[in-house]
Each structure stands twice: as C-alpha cells, then as structure tokens.
Design a protein around this nucleic acid. Structure first.
Lengths: 236, 236
DNA sequence: GCCGGTCCGTGCGGCAGCGCACACCCCCAT
DNA sequence: ATGGGGGTGTGCGCTGCCGCACGGACCGGC
C-alpha cells in the first residue's frame, strides 16, 4: 500500500530507473507542522510524498505568510537541489500528516546529472510547479477569499485519499495569507450552501462539483496544465 | 556595444561555449508591445534580451492581467523549452523596446541535453525566476499599490541603461494588476516626495535610494537571492 | 463530569482599492 | 495653428478585507 509508487512521479519512472533508486529511498514520516526545509537553509533531502501534503510558504519580515504552492503525492519537495541553488527563500511545511520517501541531495544531484528520464521528469514537474506559483500570484491579486478558499480545498482533497481535511481555519488563513475571520466567513457560506461541513479542525467536502463551480478558474488552469505536462503522473 | 555579451547570462558562459553558440545566435528587435510568445502556444525561440525588457503576464478569462516576472539582460525568455513543456500559460510581452539575441528552440534543446555549463546556468536562472514569481505572489497578497509601484520601478530601471522608463500609467496598471487611477495616485505621491518625475508616458527616477526605502522588501529579497544564484551574471 | 484551552462566531470601525464618470491637458499629425 | 485623441487628475459611492475585541462552543484530559 504505502510504497514508493504511491508517489506519482516515482510511479512514472521506468522500472529499471526505479530499481536503481530503490535502495537509496528512505521512508519517512511527515507529522503535521514538520518543517521539511527552512527558508535559506541547505536542503539535505529531496522528498517524494506518498500520503502527506507539503505547503511551500513565503514569510515576510513582519511574519505574514502566504502559500505559494502545494505538493502532494503528485510531486516532489526540494527542487532547488537539481536546479542548482541548494536552498530557496521558501519554507516547506507539512500541511497534512502522512509519509514520504526521500533521497539524499547528493544522490539526486548525481542522478540528475545523468540526464536521463529522471531529469526530464523532474524538470517537467518543476514547470508545473512554476505554473501553480504563477497562477497563485494572479489569484492573490484578483480573486476573493471565497474563491480562493474553494481553490485551496480542491488542491487539498486532490492530494488526499478522502475528501476530508484536518486543518483549523487559523492555519488555512495562514496558507491563504488572509485573516482567520475571513476564512470563518467563507467557510460558513460554503457550509450553508451544503458544499462542505466542518467542526473544529475537520473539513469534509460534500459536493465537489459545486465547489469547483464556486472556485476561481485558477484551480482548473493549473490542473489542465499539470495534466498536459505530466500525463502519466496524473492518470488517477 | 550591442553584442551578445550584453546579456549577462551569455556573458557568464565560457568563451568556448559562447563561440559554439555564436553562429546560431540571431539578433532581433523587440519593439514595444511585441508578443514574444503567446500563452499556450508553441515557443519557437529562446530570447536573450540585451537592451529590451520582457514581461511575463498571466491573463484571466475576464481579461484581467498581472505580471508575474520581468526579464531583461540578466535573463532569458522561453524557459519552457528546456524545462520540457514547449509552452506555458503565460504571455511574454515587450515592456521596453530594445533588442535581443535568440536561438531556435531545437538548438537550445540539443545544447541543454549536453548537460554542460549552459544547462547549469539556465537552471540556476530558472530558479531565480521562480523566486521572483513566488515573491510576486506574496507581494500581491500583502503589499500596497504604493509599495508595489516602487518595486516595479526598481525592477525596470535595473534593466535599463538610464533611470528613465517609457510607459504609460495605464500599462503599468496592467502589469501590477491594479486600476490606472491607483497608479496615478501612487505616482503622484512619489513625485511630490521628489523621488520621480513624469509626464505622459515618461517616468524618470530621481532618487533611487529613497525609492528603495519606500518599496516593500520584495525587491531586495529577489535581488539578493538572484545575486546568490548567479553571482557572475550580476557583477554589474 | 468538570475544567481549560483551543477553535469558531460575530460585531464594529476603518480603509485601501474598485468601478465609473468626467474634466482637463499635453502632444502630435494634418 | 488647430483639432483630435491618448494620457492624466479628481471625485464619489461602494465593497471586501483588515484589525481588534470578546463571547461562546466544542473537545480532550484529568
């Protein structure tokens, strides 16, 4: 069940590739709130989530935060390793507890330098991540908290086995970079509309279709572009 | 004067690398407003600006726009070619007229596949672009139009020979994704403070230091991270 | 079963930015 | 030189979000 192939990038690799990698893969737990890597710090491992979800956050001097991308079992955390920077100004935090497989940075660098299918896959994934970040930028500019909450919920349940999210409104507000009260209000509307139910840190999505229709276009744009870039990894 | 080396990425390549590339480089004009590539369309060439500036824009269904990154002589336009996507959902538009050198996508793909210094350089630049986009995302969330205008002016004059920008407030508003009137007001404040002067599509920066102090931190964060990733290309 | 802390609901004043409307003015082309 | 059009200044009402404050409700632990 919980094996490397549960990560869709690893699953997309040819058996021979995966086999070579296998003995270097290390399974790790990702408890809620764990900081996978800190902004500006050397990244030691590259993580392939299987059941966990990781948020990439930027933090301002005054402590304000905003999520710039989400990575679940469709992706990989630590792209700065093969991009060559070794670190990034973003912080990676576990948003939903679960597990992941990780590789040492050194091994990833070496493997990447071979220039094979693994390199191609990582780069295409990176491009899809860029798309997600860019769409987040314009979404932050133009869309309402209500719409963004819908987008965020969709991004989350896409990466979870069940349409149920364990997260307080306070934390969601940190992700979206808005007030906690704003999330309370938006979530209230969704509950009244019968789209979700929630109680103290649990959110259940009841009507995904309607959630999509209430979301801004940003969710769909990113989904379509990701499917284009990584068709094999998105066959779910 | 206007030679390939005026682009800092090309200048950072070893002479031998550049020499091999030289005969494939084609000098092109970049007139104001020219669409270098359209969202979702196949990218045919990779551009290395020397004097021009290119904006990467996202466009929403309702026509609203936002700039997600700027590329001048420090960078390259068309990263989707070597990232493997062949296209992106963003549009690239010339924001300040000038010229560039370009390479055919096919040649870039082949060269990139060699895995040499050119690959390293392009990937590190891509990471710095990612940083710029991510910072733009959080900036859109948390900072005022006044601050963002300062950031935008700094990004522009960094890429221009003189601290003078040819651009209407209307167009700046499109870049920032705000109202034209918002830019008028913000620019008025800056002019009163003696930081800039402007008239009908011309903006001159008089006091760069003060402009920096009135900008949000986002400008500096990106500058520092870019300098870290590309020390040789930023020796200016 | 009670207690305490975390989480959620709600209200209020304030304000930045929006959409719209319109006046003015600079500049250039005829 | 003059008319026209693009670029800029300004005002007004509106709304979405912020910051703050506090009350209440839920839930887990003893």
């Amino acid at each position: 069940m919980d094996e490397p192939k549960r990560n869709l990038l690893l699953a997309a690799l040819a058996p021979a590739e995966l086999k070579r990698m296998r003995q270097h893969l290390e399974r790790v737990d990702m408890p809620l709130g764990k900081v996978v890597y800190e902004a500006g710090r050397l990244v030691e491992h590259v993580y392939f989530p299987t059941t966990g979800i990781v948020s990439l956050l930027y933090v301002l001097e005054n402590g304000a935060t905003a999520e710039i991308a989400v990575v679940g079992n469709e992706g990989v955390v630590g792209i700065s390793i093969f991009m060559g920077g070794e670190s990034t100004p973003s912080r990676a935090v576990v948003q939903s507890a679960g597990s992941a497989y990780r590789l040492s940075s050194q091994w990833v660098r070496d493997e990447f330098a071979r220039g094979g299918p693994m390199q191609h896959l990582m780069l295409r994934y990176t491009q899809s991540l860029i798309t997600q970040m860019a769409q987040t930028a314009i979404c932050n500019r133009h869309h309402s908290v209500d719409q963004q909450l819908c987008r965020w919920l969709l991004l989350s349940i896409d990466r979870l086995p069940d349409p149920e999210i364990l997260m307080t409104q306070e934390l969601i507000a940190n992700m979206l970079g808005v007030r906690r009260e704003g999330v309370t209000e938006a979530a209230g509307k969704l509950q009244n509309a019968g789209v979700i139910t929630y109680r103290r840190g649990h959110i259940k999505v009841l009507d995904r279709k309607q959630l999509e229709s209430m979301s801004c276009e940003c969710y769909e744009v990113v989904r379509v572009e990701t499917a284009r870039l990584l068709p094999r990894a998105l066959s779910r």
